[in-house]
Design a protein around this nucleic acid. Structure first.
Lengths: 342, 342
DNA sequence: GTTGACCAGACATACGTATGTCAATTACCG
DNA sequence: CGGTAATTGACATACGTATGTCTGGTCAAC
């Protein structure tokens, strides 16, 4: 009934502890016949290695780095906060972190930073930058050093990452579309879509998802072309004003990502916009307050704390060669309103 | 830079390992002066006990029991599945579970089962039953044996539990109300509220939350009295039909908890109800399918996998006398539509 | 000055695994 | 058959913590 140990395996297989160890850890110099007996014993007794004891013996340390975009970004700030929050819980688990800020807008700077990582002192990296050919190469280099890589928030589908921790942005866009459609059922009108930049793949995917749902299920609603405002508060205010004037049937605004603050600011200072439906992405200090103030009707978010913890767990599992507990790691697309705000 | 161990503490404090141990584990026979020196050293070096090593040395086993309502209940079934799933995961190492099914509708049966627990072979219990005076007493008895108790799904606020793992049902009701209000903005009409039973405090709290939001923010919507149908599919079908006929302005149905299947069945077989807004609680096989089929517009749910893992982590933390990682343990009120279904 | 209570320290052993050394056995080749 | 290489076993030590035993010291009360 008790958990079998390597000793039990050795006894059952009729070999020595050393041989069991050699088999279990894939070392050389074991006769196939004995290896098979050991494996049979493992199966028969249902042995599972005690990772904690193993880590203790090995003096295992998990050394991870987070590579995040620098600059003022509310989402990144909440991610950093989540990392720091996880730190104290993880020291006890022999895990340590490094946070690296890179100028995500400059591919060369990103690559320089990635290449400057001291690979010999790292076991895994979580990366949140847009995918470019240079980034792909840098990741290939990191991986060739035997370091595990997970993409964070925004997927790097062509870079051979070991995992993607984040939401499916296409579905997130669809969710926004469905919400808008249901909020505006029985109404016709148009929807303004804004974002900071459409080069980030998140925004592109969200826009696709939005359009698919709206055109498919809510054809009475029309989406206007995406307005990009590149960190320029003045521009969004101006553009928003213009859009309102030229679209008297405007019913809703959908902010697809970074730049929520500027959008909210514009909404607030323009008159006659207060009865627009407004949906934004990401739960940050700014959007939270807007939700409480009734300026936003709903937020589409991913749970950043969960995201960070998940990335850490996945990196550890990869290092241990262990399975990933999918159900636990799935990052959900959350719909947050004032009433279920946490 | 490396993690300090008890040896470092002993050296720093100028005492022996034994004394450090006596202080750390709250044993007697330590002069206050020395105890203080040890504590100072702990603070200075930032020592945190390596729980894994400690558990190894102690041969620690965590023995937990789940007390769940018996009978056909989709939510409970998903909880049981989540417990079994957790068994294979990291959260559950050195942990063994017992699942106890009780007839939650019969307070005496519940208490008999609680009293029949072998307290000497238990470290913690997670309980999901309605609170009655008898249950309160039984829990007091369990706690007096030094066993930790967490309330699951439905709070037991007067029973001195160590923790409540679940959502705030008042807020869940408010969330449903807000969703209904926004789905039906610019419309007047009435909303049908159904549940299996209003004795469960969940339903009562949800109803309060619903009413508060609707009457406060959406006064154009009227809620009808709650219909209870006590596991009687025939009854709900009949009552629903009657409600529809006598309320021609019916716009939505809100199912507050168990009994979703019967409600959906009734919705399906009655004619002319297909354009009602329908919101239900709990993501189960039944509600999931209804969401996919478009019969439900949204589901208010708690992540059952998270709920179970959280209860386990909290029980373990209590047993270890460790802190609870609040941000991780908060169970969120999820809004699930077809597009963000997982 | 002896007794006993209290307090401290030294030391050993254990948990399950990893990893090393070294000698002993076995298999294979010619 | 001998010789060599491949394989194996026995044993020791370690990781950080828990826990026991045994010895020795201090201090107050008798």
């Amino acid at each position: 009934m008790v958990k079998p140990t390597v000793h039990d395996i050795a006894r059952e297989a009729g070999v020595s502890l050393s041989t069991v160890d050699r088999v279990l850890n894939g070392r050389a110099d074991v006769r196939p016949k004995n290896a098979e007996r050991v494996k049979a014993a493992v199966r028969k007794l249902g042995y599972v290695r005690d990772t904690n004891a193993a880590n203790l013996a090995k003096q295992r340390r998990y050394r991870f780095a987070f590579v995040l975009p620098e600059g003022p970004n509310h989402l990144v700030e909440t991610i950093v906060a989540a990392i720091h929050e996880a730190t104290w819980a993880q020291v006890a688990d022999r895990t340590e972190f490094r946070i690296l800020s890179v100028n995500a807008a400059d591919p060369h700077a990103v690559v320089d930073n990635l290449n400057a990582l001291d690979l010999s002192s790292l076991d895994g990296v979580a990366i949140m930058v847009p995918e470019t050919p240079q980034v792909r190469d840098a990741i290939a280099h990191i991986k060739s050093a035997g370091i595990y890589v997970v993409a964070l928030v925004s997927d790097l589908p062509n870079s051979g990452c070991d995992y993607f921790a984040g939401i499916d942005n296409f579905s997130a866009g669809k969710t926004a579309g469905a919400l808008l459609g249901k909020f505006l059922r029985n109404e016709t009108g148009s929807i303004l879509v804004v974002t900071n930049s459409m080069v980030a793949r998140d925004s592109i995917e969200r826009r696709f998802g939005l359009d698919e749902v709206l055109s498919g299920e809510f054809p009475h609603l029309k989406t206007l072309p995406t307005i990009e405002f590149h960190d320029d508060a003045e521009r969004i205010r101006e553009t928003l004003g213009h859009a309102v004037r030229s679209n008297p049937d405007l019913k809703a605004v959908y902010s697809m990502g970074s730049g929520n603050a500027a959008m909210l600011d514009a909404l607030r200072t323009q008159s006659g916009l207060s009865d627009l439906i407004a949906i934004a992405h990401d739960l940050t200090a700014v959007t939270r307050q807007a939700l409480l103030d009734g300026e936003l009707d709903a937020i589409i978010a991913q749970n950043v704390g969960h995201l960070v913890r998940s990335a850490i767990r996945v990196l550890r599992a990869k290092c241990d060669g262990a399975d990933i507990y999918e159900a636990q790691e799935r990052i959900r697309i959350e719909i947050i309103m004032r009433e279920n705000l946490y």
